[in-house]
Amino acid sequence: MPEILPVLAENTHLIAEFCSSFPGDGRSTEFWIHRLNHWWKNNPAMTEDWPRGSMLMAEGSVQGICLCIPIRLVVDGKVQLAALRSTWRVLPAYRSVSLQLPMALDARISHLININGTPNATAVKIMKMFSHYWTCLRPEVMSSIHWGSPLAALCRMLRFSIPHKRLPRFVASNKITHETAAEQVDRHWVNIQSASLNGPVRDWNYWAWFSINNPSFSCSLFYHPLVINGAVFPLCVLMTDFGDGRLQLSDVWPHDATVNHLREMVNLIIKTARRHGFHSIQIAHLTPNLAQAAGRTGRFKTLSQQADIWVHQPSNASALNRGHWPLYNGDALL
């Protein structure tokens, strides 16, 4: 008889084995243990009683899961926890009861803002069927810059990987250490938090969690501190290395950085990327200022690629559209 149970801390190894053996995954149990620990144990937003998710048990083993990651948001100037939904997987033999997993999870997180950054078309239909409070935040169109030899262009067209050096997890435009960067970022975050647009809490813990301390994906933090009127204005960019010669700028902060300041930073990132052997940079962001800055360099072109972020907030969903969101405010980089 199938049974729906809450996922507990001691179930981490079971969940990792299920994920690694799930059809089409192809990643090791060790990868998933590190990833799950990153989501929960090492997550700066984690609380002792956080609902990790639901699992379907039958025949003495896990047959399905629906997981949940805590993330801190600032909404109308106040910090609150939100639920980041992830990894709804059920083996074919038990798909007839698969809806029981998100329903069991909903009973524990329905009072929170829910975020789903990676739903497929089927999942979106099911989400809307259960609630009309899901809101789609649609990002700006991506921009891209390419360079290199005709051979590099051919490799891009054929989607061959081009060898390049891995970026360090922390890249600064000067010789500043990440400890000093942490102090500057947190100081600036405290000063502007109440006036920040709705979106993730972007203190140092946020940037370090996605980049320096991220065991699953190759993400780096590019840090460029500006001094404006005697005060440090820290520019942070989350950079994602896809492993094939493409570098993506997945998040940028603060939201009120001027286009001229961002253009200066983009030019520095271009030099860094070229020095490490990348053949292109892509920019993906829900706010247009970074795309405008890139456009003013005269070296980017527009692509048609888009991705949606789905947010569920019964009380005031429309307010979240007035936000400063990274493209991957889902589990794609976690």
Results as ranks from 00 to 15, higher is better:
Phe130Pro: 02
Ser110Asn: 13
Lys128Phe: 05
Val124Ser: 03
Cys68Ile: 06
Trp88Arg: 04
Leu73Gly: 02
Ile69Asn: 05
Arg72Phe: 01
Gln100Thr: 00
Lys125Pro: 01
Ala83Trp: 05
Phe130Cys: 11
Ala121Leu: 14
Leu101Cys: 05
Arg95Lys: 14
Leu67Asp: 02
Leu105Ala: 03
Arg89Lys: 14
Leu112Asp: 00
Ile69Trp: 06
Tyr94Glu: 07
Gly117Asp: 02
Gln100Asp: 09
Ser86His: 15
Arg95Pro: 03
Pro119Thr: 03
Met103Trp: 06
Ser96Pro: 01
Arg95Ser: 06
Asp106Ala: 14
Gln80Lys: 11
Gln100Gly: 13
Leu67Gln: 09
Met103Thr: 10
Lys78Cys: 10
Tyr94Cys: 10
Ala107Val: 07
Lys125Arg: 15
Leu67Tyr: 05
Gln80Val: 08
Ile113Met: 09
Leu84Arg: 12
Ala104Cys: 04
Arg72Asp: 11
Phe130Met: 13
Asp106Ser: 12
Asp76Arg: 10
Leu112Trp: 02
Ala83Lys: 07
Ser86Asp: 15
Ala107Tyr: 03
Leu67Pro: 01
Ala107Leu: 12
Asn114Gln: 14
Ile126Asn: 08
Gly77Thr: 07
Met127His: 08
Leu105Pro: 05
Leu67Ala: 08
Arg89Thr: 03
Val75Asn: 07
Arg108Ser: 10
Ala82Trp: 04
